[in-house]
Amino acid sequence: MLTIDAEAYRSPWRTVHPAVKGVLFGGLLVCALALPAWPGAALAGAVALAFGLGPARVPPRKLLRTGLGPLAFIATGAAALLVSVGGPDGPIAWDPQGAARAAELTGRASAAVVCQLLFAFTTPLADLLPRLSRAGLPPALVEVVALIYRMLFVALDTARRVGAAQAGRLGYANRRNRVRSLGALGAALFVRSYDRAARLQRGLECRGYTGALTVLVDDIPLRASALAAAAVPAVLVAAAALTLGAWT
């Protein structure tokens, strides 16, 4: 399984309605984006982390490892702000305001990534997808989305096994082999995915498939008080950031 999904299933917050978690982390995400980066984004990130590592018990090491990808992108992108090009000081020059802009962008985006990751780490997609059709999306699309979600783990597993078999035969020993092996992996994956879909179709038809795949969704009651409570941290962060901003 994928780290994020596996952790989401294990999360003590799995029993919390996705909308409540959405309001909590979404509200903090909006704070990180809309408030001044200092102290707004820093506060939003810190509060989100406190909730995530505290009551939601998200494993910090896994959170960090998953966050490394987006953080690398943020660092690379922010590094480009340090210099300016085509100015009077030559083709490439140090931008005096660059460091401040880069720091602001890094802080804001890192806080936003933390909020997004913590939502993903506490909410399995399987709890989220069936609720999409209630949000007004066409049922055919929601079903295709749900099918993609169900099939992708089998496909990922196939890719992993094929990759291991290829590596065992020195399929990744040099560059030429790597390209060949990856191509073979892609082709095998395509053929098997289609074959599996056809077999699934036949199996479902034998069980009276009429086009609707009904699954049981855990019925989590959504209370207005819980929603309101989830919005409180974001409101407090916004108030604190604006007061601190007015002081400085």
Partner: peptide, 13 residues
């Protein structure tokens, strides 16, 4: 529908 599901999973992987 199932083929589109398979195609989506293929694109993701």
């Amino acid at each position: 529908k199932l083929l589109l599901g398979a195609s989506g999973a293929f694109c993701f992987v």
